[in-house]
Design a protein around this nucleic acid. Sequence first.
DNA 1: CGCGACGTTGATTTGCCTCAACGATTGTGG
DNA 2: CCACAATCGTTGAGGCAAATCAACGTCGCG
Lengths: 189, 189
Amino acid sequence: MYQQITAHVQRDIHLNTAEIEEFHSLLVEEKVSSKDFLLEPGKDVLYEYYVVQGCLKAYYLDKKGNKHILQFAIEDWWISDFEAFFKNEPASLHIEAIEDSYLLGIKKEILEPLYERIPKFERFFRIKTTNAFVALRSRILSSLQKDAKQRYLDFCITYPSIEKRVPNYHIANYLGITPESLSRIRKSL
Amino acid sequence: MYQQITAHVQRDIHLNTAEIEEFHSLLVEEKVSSKDFLLEPGKDVLYEYYVVQGCLKAYYLDKKGNKHILQFAIEDWWISDFEAFFKNEPASLHIEAIEDSYLLGIKKEILEPLYERIPKFERFFRIKTTNAFVALRSRILSSLQKDAKQRYLDFCITYPSIEKRVPNYHIANYLGITPESLSRIRKSL
DNA sequence: CGCGACGTTGATTTGCCTCAACGATTGTGG
DNA sequence: CCACAATCGTTGAGGCAAATCAACGTCGCG
């Protein structure tokens, strides 16, 4: 159960047995059934979550009621309303399970002292954030320079495991197009 | 000269005199005249830069020769080809001065040992990266949910100091629209 | 079975692009 | 100091990719 997240963390930093123990003791288990919410707008964002098993989406609902998927998460990914988490604001995102999911959460107020005690964890999360930042950069570039068909093909190459797992209308939403358009794009391939 | 970046850093972490001294000793001054390049594709990205004075743009040139602006930077911002910087890859971005600019650079190979010696700096850059990450998230949301007019209005509200300073065709490019479209949008306001 | 979830197809509309031309302003060399 | 070029913004005409609206087929499940 915990060896998965341990291996995940140790890809970026090295921990001794005591540090691993300590880390595990800070994690909270969470289960969410498909179509249930891990987070909803207005709630305090106390945790960020590591996905042990399952599949989720984080989306924003605008004033017109339109959904906009910001992120998917499957095994080995982290998910939260990061903006709210970091700024200590109430959530503005929905995080909803697409499949029954099993998560490990770490609380913000526990993270800060952990950084102090074991700076390697500050490094770990800096590296994770940096990678996420870089991924967003290329998503921006993609949306600036490519048409819908190219973006879809890029998505399939970058996230093949997600493409196989979530319904097309979710992917369309993530790409910023309608399900009808995606259908026509797929037909043209 | 250095008190500006010191104040900037101290907004997020607290440093004693010795640490400030040490930090200053690691910085390298750099001047770039308007229309000159701080960075070009293919070059090694050894530094990330703090803007003391001036205005620059970071852009990607695609195969068709189209420019896509990823970022502007003015006083108190950091700029680099962050992806290449973090991954130790050659640059893929151009960084070009829009005005004569004065920068302070910090070398990657100096940053890593600095993190070890004074973990507060790892914290500082984690916080900076987190803020940048959050800003990119809202740019993504903006491009998913809003039309060109709304994105332009958002831009003017978020970055009034940039909007006043750079020509409209740069802003159009950043927003992913043509200068003609931006002109028509501005007319309609 | 009947209903909801998901994908597809067609007709029409629209936001933005492309191409082309034309001021206005700035700056630069003769 | 003027002439000319370059830079920047604007306007118009026409086109296209994707949205919208509407309908329908299929599958799986309570």
